[in-house]
């Protein structure tokens, strides 16, 4: 018999904080797959885990920082990016990864996102986009599709959603990719690429929220989400991010931006070197 109820530890166990699995996420929630993909990337890169800091915000995916066996911090709602900026600038040797949700990063924290991207601070931002505020019971958010029903759009959403890859590209991110949780391998490869890249990197992961959004929007079960992703996803590497809007019919995925630009840390280092030796005295 090939199958067994195993006593052998899961190979990713060393990358997960002890006693935290099972996690709090719902059956079929994409956040678990994102965690899986993220720690797989860490494992495959063979990075020094001492130099990884995982920062999260509020919402379901916010709990991810507590699950990774690295230094980690679970901030207030919307603030993982500025917190991560402080960490990165205080110790540029650290690989600082923000993993948070669409509401956290683009509603309450939207301003922080665009400015960190503009400055090209070398933090990596992974967004679990599940189209709504799952943890608080499924309210409308900045990526909720037009006309979609949520707890706070009982008559259908009248707001246009963000196209996150376009926003990231326009804000100055040097690496931008989008995948769904069905594209696990590609997701892992993108995370690996982002971790190794200098500068502000952004990966959007379109993720199922079966228990909350799935019900309100009538998309349905976790499997219905995944089947939608399978049917609608079109890989369009390096296509125009402005044209990458997510619709019911089409989810453009792929790498959209991969460019080089001096990072804030590099320019800061240069400026500091220049400033050393020039002392402003008192009066």
């Amino acid at each position: 018999m090939a199958e067994q109820t195993t006593q052998i530890a899961h190979p990713l166990e060393p990358f997960l904080r002890k006693t935290t699995i099972p996690h709090i996420w719902c059956p079929g929630c994409g956040d678990g797959t994102i965690l899986n993909s993220f720690v797989t990337a860490l494992k495959e890169l063979e990075v020094n885990l001492d130099k990884i800091a995982v920062i999260s915000g509020i919402g379901c995916i916010g709990r991810i920082a507590g699950y990774t066996n690295t230094d980690s911090f679970h901030t207030t709602h919307g603030r993982p990016i500025p917190f991560a900026v402080g960490v990165k600038l205080a110790n540029p040797e650290l690989n600082v990864i923000v993993i948070s949700g669409d509401g956290d990063l683009f509603a309450i924290g939207g301003n922080h996102f665009i400015h960190a991207a503009r400055r090209n601070i070398g933090i990596k931002v992974i967004c679990s986009n599940n189209f709504n505020y799952g943890m608080t019971g499924g309210q409308q958010g900045p990526t909720t599709p037009l006309a979609s029903r949520t707890a706070t759009t009982p008559f259908g959403n009248i707001e246009h959603p963000f196209n996150l890859v376009h926003l990231a590209a326009a804000s100055g991110a040097v690496y931008v990719a989008r995948w769904t949780t069905l594209h696990v391998r590609r997701m892992t490869e993108s995370i690996k690429k982002a971790i190794q890249k200098e500068g502000f990197s952004f990966i959007e992961i379109v993720s199922p929220c079966p228990e909350i959004y799935g019900k309100a929007s009538k998309i349905g079960t976790a499997m219905d989400f995944m089947n939608w992703f399978k049917k609608a996803s079109v890989i369009q590497n390096f296509s125009d991010p402005a044209q990458a809007e997510i619709t019911a019919e089409k989810i453009p995925v792929g790498e959209f931006v991969d460019v080089e630009k001096p990072t804030f840390e590099k320019l800061l280092r240069e400026m500091t070197a220049q400033a050393q030796g020039k002392v402003t005295g008192g009066a």
Partner: peptide, 12 residues
């Protein structure tokens, strides 16, 4: 953002 960054730097 300022205070968030300060807390981050403190933790680093």
């Amino acid at each position: 953002a300022s205070i968030a960054a300060v807390i981050g730097a403190s933790y680093a």
